[in-house]
Design a protein around this nucleic acid. Structure first.
Lengths: 228, 228
DNA sequence: TGGATAATTATTCGAGTGTATAACAGTAGG
DNA sequence: CCTACTGTTATACACTCGAATAATTATCCA
């Protein structure tokens, strides 16, 4: 029996490849279905590599969880930073990003929920979750503060944190149920819904967020203004 | 070797006992840790009974999930029905119930999340989830409608549904993160927070929900009015 | 170019899994 | 009291799991 020809990857690539394969397996078959054999089959390698790169299966799973959380938060926060616009625009972009693909995906929610289910008993998972949650709250507070200030609303640290907690709840809940898409309503309504709801939640004047032009629309507006 | 003395239970009691044991195991060890042996050990019986009562382990797990969802929704909706007060009071009670024990518990959230993680791949789980979600939305719509009507706000079916979706998101998210209690804030602030947030979300005048007296406070007010 | 080193494969092993089945023990009806 | 029935236990089986180890191969540096 001839040996399989194999490719030698860099340490980071191989690790990432194994973590991606792990997430794929967890999303498809749950934690119980994410066996070393299936993961390595998914990654196209043999099962010895898990031990070689992560020491144990548990360590691989934990690494994959941290990898996922990192992706989720950076994905969302970067979509707001890509704009140089007004605070309202950035907040609106951030909210919309959480209610549209790729952030709003069944796969992500399945993964998120599966790992959340282990937070209570596994302190390592708890640590990863807490860190991700804290970071998300911080991003929200940073986005909220200037918007409140611009409209003469209380914007102290305590008020911002309180608003961030509520807003995060709204986002998490809608993201969750929306991604699962139980068929009770269309996912397409979520972006507008979360924007309107956030306006009221922050006690902003109606239209402040929903009328905030996206960068794309701003471009279109400026370019259309010329030929007119 | 002498046989173990055993107790013969009714069909319903034995089934419930096995489902409770299943939930205990899933909450403690996750789905992967909920083996037939541990479940039956937890229930104090031998492993043959799973086959006898549920046909297979998978069927037991599914039954336990449906059992859990039924408990969660009935628990919350009944705590609002126990009041004969104004619509505002009932809604406030419902919201508070979701932010306090026993509804707000790590165990429940762990279980909920663990099962949600399987919704995507297992259509049976998806069915159970959809049914529970639908029921929760209906309860919310029913609670919201009279409150909106009483304050001259739009209360058509579409508006109510939209509000219910947002409110459900808020509740789910806060319930989730709050139960996990990452230590970033005190759980004690959640009831007031969700009430205030809901007031703004529904565009109600400030104080409509937060000032709504609970039945307990109503009793105290009437009984204290005499000796004064 | 060749040898050292690290990456990868192949195989083995004991423990644990869900399921199946036979033996046992309470219970109810005649 | 006996018999049929079924809830329950006990045991066996085939399979999969994670981990460990040895053999093999690619890469890199001298």
């Amino acid at each position: 029996m001839s040996r399989k020809a194999f490719q030698r990857l860099t340490l980071d690539d191989r690790r990432r490849s194994l973590m991606e394969a792990t997430l794929t397996c967890v999303a498809r078959d749950g934690l119980q279905g994410a066996t070393v054999r299936r993961i390595t089959e998914e990654a196209g390698v043999t099962l010895g590599l898990v031990r070689h790169y992560f020491g144990s299966k548990d360590e691989l799973i934990r690494s994959a969880y941290a990898y996922l959380i990192g992706q989720l938060t950076s994905q969302a926060s970067e979509s707001s930073k890509q704009s140089e616009g007004a605070p309202e625009v950035q907040l609106a972009l951030f909210l919309r990003a959480n209610m549209t693909r790729p952030n709003l995906s069944e796969r992500n929610v399945s993964l998120w929920a599966t790992f959340i289910g282990r937070v209570r008993s596994d302190s390592t998972f708890a640590e990863i979750h807490r860190e991700g949650y804290r970071e998300f709250l911080t991003v929200l507070e940073t986005l909220i503060e200037p918007v409140l200030a611009a409209h003469g609303l209380p914007h102290g640290a305590a008020a911002c944190k309180r608003h961030a907690i509520a807003l995060n709840g709204l986002i998490d809940g809608l993201w969750m149920e929306g991604s699962l898409n139980s068929g009770l309503y269309s996912q397409a309504m979520l972006p507008d819904l979360v924007i309107e709801a956030s306006e009221r939640l922050l006690a902003l004047p109606p239209g402040v967020l929903s009328q905030a032009p996206t960068p794309l629309e701003e471009q279109r507006l400026t370019s259309c203004a010329m030929p007119e």
